[in-house]
Amino acid sequence: MLKKIGGIVFFLLIMAVGFLIWTSPGKTKPIRGTNGQPLPRSIAKLEAVTINGTTQWLLMRGADSTKPVLLFLHGGPGLPEASLLVGHELEEKFVVVNWDQRGAGKSYDGTVFDSTFRVSTFVNDAVAVSQWLTKRFRQPRIYLMAHSWGTFLGILTVQKQPELFSAYFSISQIANQLEAEQISYNWVLAEARRRGERRQVNRLLRQGPPPYPADAWLDYLMWQRELVAAYGGGMYRANFYPLFIRSILLFNEYTVLDKIYYGFGAMKSVRYLWPAVVATDLYKTAPALKVPYYLFQGIHDYQTPYVTARRYFDQVRSPRKRLFSFSNSAHSPIFEEPEHFHRCLDSALADVQSMNR
């Protein structure tokens, strides 16, 4: 009986490995029309480019390569989201460029995690990628869209080089992340008490509220974010992690090695960058932007809480700004309320175009 069980387990393991290899060709599929053929003006390309001395990967996809370019800054740090965006409706409106940032996803390279792996380096990388895209697609300006950690990077990038961007679309804005972490801690503690989860209450009380030493943030975030997700502060009506992990495992654009390295890149990126994120107050660092600013924020978000993001939106100066609130979303309204998100995005685009008339 043990031999039979062992044989079944071995067979299932081989099947799982085979399935992982089959779903990991490291290539992107063409964008096809209703006739099944690739659209004649479409673009679907994975490309490795040299950015400030390092190899970084761009996934460029759009139904029409002459449409405006939209650079997407993923969250994390170190958590590319292209696996959730391939085939997304954004590809109808833009040439969507998913950039695996330095050390993350396909851009993983263990040698980059050194003294240069800091926020200012990422800002310089984002500027360089944006400049590369303006030349590649012969467009004087591009659109910038960011999520979570990407919103922190996006604000600093737009502030540094505003002439590169037509508008900035921010999803779940980081503003003062130390304040946000304190709100998140208090909310999780209150939720654990309300649910009668004494073990989690005791763990949180032993931990104590933020701030923490630089070397303690990664460990805290790994278990605290699990509670945020479980209580509906990450994705309001579901748990984001199973959805996200499944999307990575099935992502054709990553090789098996890319998928193995994905977690290493995420943990190292947080370890190196998060202390600087929580030490920065964008209310003071970036009080004004020179591009139109559009914020898409879920009211149930307890990773980058609504109250903190809303306060930054209210205070920041911009030539044009609008807030789009999502009543059935937490940290990812682009995925939680996709139809409402696209209506809001269309409204923002119309607003930008009205400024240029």
Rank of each mutant, 00 (worst) to 15 (best):
L273D: 09
A286R: 02
Y294T: 05
T308W: 06
F313L: 05
L282R: 02
I299W: 04
D281P: 03
A309I: 02
P292C: 11
D314S: 13
P305W: 07
A288K: 07
K284V: 11
A288L: 00
K284Q: 08
F313C: 08
Y272A: 10
H300I: 08
L282E: 08
A309D: 03
R310M: 13
A288P: 00
L295C: 07
G298C: 10
D301E: 05
P275S: 13
V316G: 09
A286W: 00
T308C: 10
L273W: 06
T280S: 14
A288D: 00
Q303I: 15
S318N: 03
Y293E: 04
Y283D: 09
T280E: 13
A279Y: 05
W274A: 09
R322G: 00
A276K: 14
L295G: 04
L323F: 12
K284C: 02
V278E: 14
T285A: 13
A288E: 04
A279V: 11
Y294M: 12
K284N: 04
T285V: 09
K321S: 05
R317L: 13
P292T: 02
S318I: 01
V307W: 09
Y272E: 11
Y312M: 11
V277H: 08
Q297V: 07
D301Y: 03
Y272K: 12
K290M: 10
T308M: 13
Q303H: 06
H300A: 14
L282D: 01
Y306T: 09
P275H: 14
L273K: 08
A286Q: 00
L323I: 02
A276N: 15
Q315Y: 07
Y283P: 00
L295R: 02
V307A: 15
Y312E: 05
L323T: 01
K284G: 02
A286L: 01
F296P: 00
Q297D: 08
P319C: 07
V316M: 07
G298V: 01
G298N: 03
L282N: 14
A288Q: 06
Y312N: 12
T285L: 08
V307H: 12
P319Y: 01
K321T: 00
P287E: 03
D281Q: 05
V278I: 15
K321H: 04
K290S: 13
R320C: 13
P305D: 04
Q303R: 13
A309P: 01
L289Q: 02
A276Q: 15
R310H: 14
Y306N: 11
K284P: 00
Q303S: 14
L295I: 04
Y293R: 03
T304K: 05
R311C: 01
Q297L: 12
T280P: 04
W274P: 06
K284M: 07
F296H: 07
Y294I: 09
P319W: 04
V277G: 11
V291L: 03
K290C: 04
Y294D: 02
R322P: 02
V291N: 00
A279N: 14
Y312H: 15
L273I: 09
F296T: 00
Y272D: 06
V307K: 14
Y306L: 08
R310T: 09
Y293L: 10
P287H: 00
